[in-house]
Simulated scan of single mutants.
Amino acid sequence: MKYAVFTGATGGLGTLCVKELSRLANWMVFAGGTKEAELEKLGKLPNIIPVRLDVTKQESVNATLEIIKSYTNKLDAIVNFAGMTSFTSLIEGESVEAIEKLLNVNVVGTARVNRTFFDMLYQGHGRIINCSSESGWMTPQPFAGPYVLSKYAVDAYNDSLRRELIYLGIPVIKIQPGSYETNITQQVYENFDKTISNTKYYKKLLTKMKPLMMMELNQKNDSRRLVKTVIHAMESRHPKLKYRVGTGKLLAMLELLPEGGVDVVYKLIFGKQGHL
Protein backbone atom coordinates (compact mmCIF):
# COMPACT_ATOMS: atom_id res chain seq x y z
CA MET A 1 0.00 0.00 0.00
CA LYS A 2 1.21 3.51 -0.89
CA TYR A 3 0.41 6.51 1.27
CA ALA A 4 -0.12 10.12 0.21
CA VAL A 5 -1.12 13.34 1.91
CA PHE A 6 -3.18 15.55 -0.39
CA THR A 7 -3.89 19.18 0.57
CA GLY A 8 -6.72 21.20 -0.91
CA ALA A 9 -8.81 18.05 -1.10
CA THR A 10 -12.08 19.85 -0.36
CA GLY A 11 -11.90 22.34 -3.21
CA GLY A 12 -12.43 21.94 -6.94
CA LEU A 13 -9.66 20.10 -8.73
CA GLY A 14 -8.23 18.65 -5.53
CA THR A 15 -11.54 16.92 -4.82
CA LEU A 16 -11.63 15.42 -8.31
CA CYS A 17 -8.11 14.05 -7.90
CA VAL A 18 -8.87 12.51 -4.52
CA LYS A 19 -12.05 10.87 -5.83
CA GLU A 20 -10.10 9.26 -8.65
CA LEU A 21 -7.38 8.10 -6.27
CA SER A 22 -10.04 6.42 -4.14
CA ARG A 23 -10.63 4.04 -7.06
CA LEU A 24 -7.00 2.86 -6.97
CA ALA A 25 -6.54 -0.01 -4.57
CA ASN A 26 -2.81 0.65 -4.15
CA TRP A 27 -3.18 4.15 -2.61
CA MET A 28 -4.32 5.27 0.82
CA VAL A 29 -4.86 9.05 0.75
CA PHE A 30 -4.97 11.43 3.71
CA ALA A 31 -7.26 14.04 2.18
CA GLY A 32 -6.70 17.39 3.86
CA GLY A 33 -9.02 20.38 3.66
CA THR A 34 -11.02 22.91 5.66
CA LYS A 35 -14.60 22.29 4.46
CA GLU A 36 -16.29 19.96 6.92
CA ALA A 37 -19.16 18.94 4.61
CA GLU A 38 -16.76 17.96 1.85
CA LEU A 39 -14.52 16.07 4.26
CA GLU A 40 -17.54 14.08 5.39
CA LYS A 41 -18.32 13.14 1.78
CA LEU A 42 -14.71 12.14 1.08
CA GLY A 43 -14.72 9.97 4.19
CA LYS A 44 -17.34 7.74 2.60
CA LEU A 45 -14.99 6.84 -0.25
CA PRO A 46 -12.72 3.78 -0.10
CA ASN A 47 -9.03 4.33 0.65
CA ILE A 48 -9.60 7.95 1.76
CA ILE A 49 -8.94 9.24 5.27
CA PRO A 50 -10.28 12.80 5.60
CA VAL A 51 -8.40 15.19 7.88
CA ARG A 52 -9.15 18.79 8.74
CA LEU A 53 -6.01 20.57 7.56
CA ASP A 54 -5.39 24.30 7.47
CA VAL A 55 -2.03 24.82 5.78
CA THR A 56 -1.71 28.32 7.25
CA LYS A 57 -1.54 26.99 10.82
CA GLN A 58 1.40 24.90 12.02
CA GLU A 59 -0.66 23.33 14.81
CA SER A 60 -3.16 22.05 12.24
CA VAL A 61 -0.39 20.56 10.10
CA ASN A 62 1.18 18.99 13.21
CA ALA A 63 -2.17 17.44 14.16
CA THR A 64 -2.45 15.93 10.68
CA LEU A 65 1.05 14.52 11.04
CA GLU A 66 0.05 12.71 14.23
CA ILE A 67 -3.02 11.24 12.52
CA ILE A 68 -0.90 9.96 9.65
CA LYS A 69 1.62 8.43 12.07
CA SER A 70 -1.18 6.39 13.60
CA TYR A 71 -1.57 4.62 10.24
CA THR A 72 1.93 4.48 8.76
CA ASN A 73 5.55 5.47 9.31
CA LYS A 74 6.17 6.62 5.74
CA LEU A 75 4.70 8.62 2.87
CA ASP A 76 5.04 7.93 -0.83
CA ALA A 77 3.76 11.32 -1.98
CA ILE A 78 2.97 14.82 -0.76
CA VAL A 79 0.56 16.57 -3.15
CA ASN A 80 0.01 20.28 -2.54
CA PHE A 81 -3.26 21.51 -4.06
CA ALA A 82 -4.33 23.94 -1.33
CA GLY A 83 -4.57 27.38 -2.89
CA MET A 84 -6.46 30.62 -3.33
CA THR A 85 -6.90 33.15 -6.12
CA SER A 86 -7.90 36.79 -6.39
CA PHE A 87 -8.73 39.57 -8.82
CA THR A 88 -7.75 43.02 -7.61
CA SER A 89 -5.79 46.13 -8.46
CA LEU A 90 -2.37 46.43 -6.87
CA ILE A 91 -2.98 50.11 -6.02
CA GLU A 92 -6.55 50.05 -4.74
CA GLY A 93 -8.64 48.39 -2.09
CA GLU A 94 -7.19 45.64 0.09
CA SER A 95 -4.37 44.78 -2.28
CA VAL A 96 -1.71 44.38 0.41
CA GLU A 97 -3.98 42.16 2.49
CA ALA A 98 -4.68 40.06 -0.63
CA ILE A 99 -0.95 39.63 -1.25
CA GLU A 100 -0.33 38.57 2.34
CA LYS A 101 -3.24 36.10 2.29
CA LEU A 102 -2.29 34.44 -1.00
CA LEU A 103 1.37 34.17 -0.10
CA ASN A 104 0.41 32.62 3.23
CA VAL A 105 -1.76 29.94 1.63
CA ASN A 106 -0.17 29.31 -1.77
CA VAL A 107 3.51 29.64 -0.86
CA VAL A 108 4.11 29.45 2.88
CA GLY A 109 1.41 26.80 3.27
CA THR A 110 3.06 24.63 0.64
CA ALA A 111 6.47 25.05 2.26
CA ARG A 112 5.02 24.32 5.71
CA VAL A 113 3.41 21.07 4.58
CA ASN A 114 6.53 19.84 2.80
CA ARG A 115 8.77 20.71 5.76
CA THR A 116 6.50 19.06 8.33
CA PHE A 117 5.97 15.79 6.43
CA PHE A 118 9.40 15.51 4.88
CA ASP A 119 10.88 12.99 7.32
CA MET A 120 8.03 10.59 6.59
CA LEU A 121 8.42 11.19 2.88
CA TYR A 122 12.15 10.50 3.06
CA GLN A 123 11.42 7.31 4.98
CA GLY A 124 9.18 6.19 2.10
CA HIS A 125 11.53 7.32 -0.70
CA GLY A 126 8.57 9.33 -1.94
CA ARG A 127 8.05 12.45 -4.04
CA ILE A 128 6.64 15.96 -3.75
CA ILE A 129 4.10 17.41 -6.19
CA ASN A 130 3.39 21.13 -6.01
CA CYS A 131 0.47 22.69 -7.86
CA SER A 132 1.43 26.00 -9.42
CA SER A 133 -0.49 27.54 -12.34
CA GLU A 134 -0.10 28.76 -15.89
CA SER A 135 0.21 32.13 -14.14
CA GLY A 136 3.44 30.86 -12.59
CA TRP A 137 5.31 30.94 -15.88
CA MET A 138 3.36 33.22 -18.23
CA THR A 139 3.87 36.97 -18.51
CA PRO A 140 1.85 38.58 -15.70
CA GLN A 141 -1.60 39.92 -16.44
CA PRO A 142 -3.04 43.13 -14.98
CA PHE A 143 -5.33 42.88 -11.95
CA ALA A 144 -4.10 39.38 -11.13
CA GLY A 145 -1.00 40.61 -9.29
CA PRO A 146 -1.42 38.91 -5.89
CA TYR A 147 -2.23 35.56 -7.51
CA VAL A 148 0.51 35.82 -10.15
CA LEU A 149 3.27 36.74 -7.71
CA SER A 150 2.22 33.89 -5.39
CA LYS A 151 2.38 31.38 -8.25
CA TYR A 152 5.70 32.76 -9.50
CA ALA A 153 6.91 32.19 -5.95
CA VAL A 154 5.55 28.62 -5.95
CA ASP A 155 7.47 27.95 -9.18
CA ALA A 156 10.68 29.37 -7.72
CA TYR A 157 10.20 27.47 -4.47
CA ASN A 158 9.53 24.24 -6.39
CA ASP A 159 12.66 24.57 -8.53
CA SER A 160 14.90 25.46 -5.61
CA LEU A 161 13.51 22.56 -3.58
CA ARG A 162 13.97 20.18 -6.51
CA ARG A 163 17.63 21.15 -6.89
CA GLU A 164 18.13 20.67 -3.16
CA LEU A 165 16.46 17.27 -2.99
CA ILE A 166 18.23 15.77 -6.00
CA TYR A 167 21.01 15.04 -3.52
CA LEU A 168 18.59 12.94 -1.48
CA GLY A 169 16.95 11.20 -4.43
CA ILE A 170 13.53 12.81 -3.85
CA PRO A 171 11.68 13.95 -7.03
CA VAL A 172 9.95 17.34 -6.87
CA ILE A 173 7.37 17.91 -9.61
CA LYS A 174 5.24 20.92 -10.45
CA ILE A 175 1.83 20.93 -12.07
CA GLN A 176 0.93 24.12 -13.99
CA PRO A 177 -2.80 23.93 -14.82
CA GLY A 178 -4.75 26.45 -16.84
CA SER A 179 -8.31 27.55 -16.08
CA TYR A 180 -10.93 24.97 -15.10
CA GLU A 181 -14.54 25.46 -14.06
CA THR A 182 -14.30 25.19 -10.26
CA ASN A 183 -15.33 27.13 -7.18
CA ILE A 184 -12.07 29.08 -7.59
CA THR A 185 -13.36 30.36 -10.94
CA GLN A 186 -16.49 31.57 -9.18
CA GLN A 187 -14.27 33.36 -6.67
CA VAL A 188 -12.57 35.26 -9.54
CA TYR A 189 -15.98 36.37 -10.86
CA GLU A 190 -16.96 37.65 -7.42
CA ASN A 191 -13.64 39.47 -6.96
CA PHE A 192 -14.01 41.04 -10.40
CA ASP A 193 -17.47 42.37 -9.65
CA LYS A 194 -16.25 43.75 -6.32
CA THR A 195 -13.27 45.44 -7.97
CA ILE A 196 -15.30 47.03 -10.76
CA SER A 197 -17.82 48.36 -8.22
CA ASN A 198 -15.16 49.91 -5.98
CA THR A 199 -12.48 51.07 -8.40
CA LYS A 200 -11.55 54.73 -8.58
CA TYR A 201 -9.31 54.45 -11.65
CA TYR A 202 -10.31 51.48 -13.79
CA LYS A 203 -14.08 51.22 -14.20
CA LYS A 204 -13.99 51.91 -17.96
CA LEU A 205 -11.07 49.56 -18.54
CA LEU A 206 -12.51 46.72 -16.45
CA THR A 207 -15.84 47.01 -18.26
CA LYS A 208 -13.99 46.42 -21.54
CA MET A 209 -11.89 43.66 -20.03
CA LYS A 210 -14.72 41.57 -18.59
CA PRO A 211 -15.81 39.80 -21.83
CA LEU A 212 -12.24 38.68 -22.59
CA MET A 213 -11.71 37.53 -19.03
CA MET A 214 -14.96 35.58 -19.10
CA MET A 215 -13.99 33.94 -22.38
CA GLU A 216 -10.62 32.87 -20.98
CA LEU A 217 -12.06 31.57 -17.70
CA ASN A 218 -14.95 29.78 -19.40
CA GLN A 219 -12.71 27.52 -21.46
CA LYS A 220 -14.09 24.01 -21.25
CA ASN A 221 -10.86 22.28 -20.34
CA ASP A 222 -11.39 18.62 -19.54
CA SER A 223 -10.62 18.21 -15.85
CA ARG A 224 -10.14 14.46 -16.39
CA ARG A 225 -6.90 15.20 -18.23
CA LEU A 226 -5.57 17.14 -15.26
CA VAL A 227 -6.58 14.38 -12.85
CA LYS A 228 -4.79 11.79 -15.00
CA THR A 229 -1.72 14.02 -15.10
CA VAL A 230 -1.58 14.32 -11.32
CA ILE A 231 -1.90 10.56 -10.85
CA HIS A 232 0.76 9.99 -13.52
CA ALA A 233 3.07 12.37 -11.64
CA MET A 234 2.41 10.38 -8.46
CA GLU A 235 3.06 6.97 -10.02
CA SER A 236 5.49 7.33 -12.92
CA ARG A 237 8.93 5.84 -12.43
CA HIS A 238 10.35 8.70 -14.47
CA PRO A 239 8.12 11.75 -13.94
CA LYS A 240 8.72 14.99 -15.81
CA LEU A 241 9.98 18.03 -13.95
CA LYS A 242 6.78 19.88 -14.83
CA TYR A 243 3.40 19.27 -16.43
CA ARG A 244 1.40 22.00 -18.20
CA VAL A 245 -2.26 21.14 -18.66
CA GLY A 246 -5.09 23.23 -20.07
CA THR A 247 -3.02 26.30 -20.97
CA GLY A 248 -5.20 29.22 -22.07
CA LYS A 249 -4.99 29.91 -25.81
CA LEU A 250 -5.17 33.71 -25.62
CA LEU A 251 -2.58 33.90 -22.90
CA ALA A 252 -0.32 31.46 -24.74
CA MET A 253 -0.40 33.74 -27.79
CA LEU A 254 0.94 36.61 -25.68
CA GLU A 255 3.96 34.49 -24.84
CA LEU A 256 5.09 34.81 -28.46
CA LEU A 257 5.65 38.55 -27.98
CA PRO A 258 8.45 40.43 -26.22
CA GLU A 259 7.56 42.07 -22.91
CA GLY A 260 7.13 45.50 -24.48
CA GLY A 261 4.94 43.99 -27.18
CA VAL A 262 2.60 42.58 -24.55
CA ASP A 263 2.28 46.06 -23.02
CA VAL A 264 1.38 47.48 -26.45
CA VAL A 265 -1.30 44.82 -26.97
CA TYR A 266 -2.92 45.61 -23.62
CA LYS A 267 -2.92 49.35 -24.39
CA LEU A 268 -4.35 48.82 -27.86
CA ILE A 269 -7.15 46.58 -26.63
CA PHE A 270 -8.23 48.53 -23.60
CA GLY A 271 -6.99 52.06 -24.28
CA LYS A 272 -5.32 54.55 -21.99
CA GLN A 273 -7.22 55.65 -18.87
CA GLY A 274 -5.65 59.08 -18.47
CA HIS A 275 -6.17 61.33 -15.43
CA LEU A 276 -9.45 61.72 -13.64
Rank of each mutant, 00 (worst) to 15 (best):
Y201T: 08
L13R: 03
Q187E: 11
M234D: 06
D76Y: 01
G145N: 03
L226V: 06
G261S: 07
I99Y: 15
I231Y: 05
L75E: 05
L212Q: 10
G109R: 05
A31V: 08
V107C: 03
Y152A: 01
P140C: 04
I173W: 03
P239W: 10
V113T: 09
A156R: 08
K267L: 09
K203I: 04
L21V: 08
G271V: 11
C131L: 11
N104R: 08
T247P: 00
N62I: 07
E36A: 13
L103P: 00
L75A: 06
L241N: 10
G109W: 04
Q123D: 10
K19E: 15
E94N: 14
K194W: 09
N62A: 14
I49N: 02
L268S: 13
K151S: 03
G83T: 04
F6K: 02
L268P: 00
F87C: 04
M84H: 01
E235D: 09
Y167Q: 12
E40P: 00
A82P: 06
N191D: 15
L65P: 01
M1Y: 06
Q186A: 13
L251N: 15
D155K: 09
K151Y: 02
I48N: 07
M215N: 12
M84L: 15
Y122E: 14
G109M: 05
G261R: 00
K194A: 14
R52K: 15
P142F: 02
K210C: 02
K210L: 09
K101E: 10
G271M: 08
L241S: 13
Y167E: 10
K208R: 14
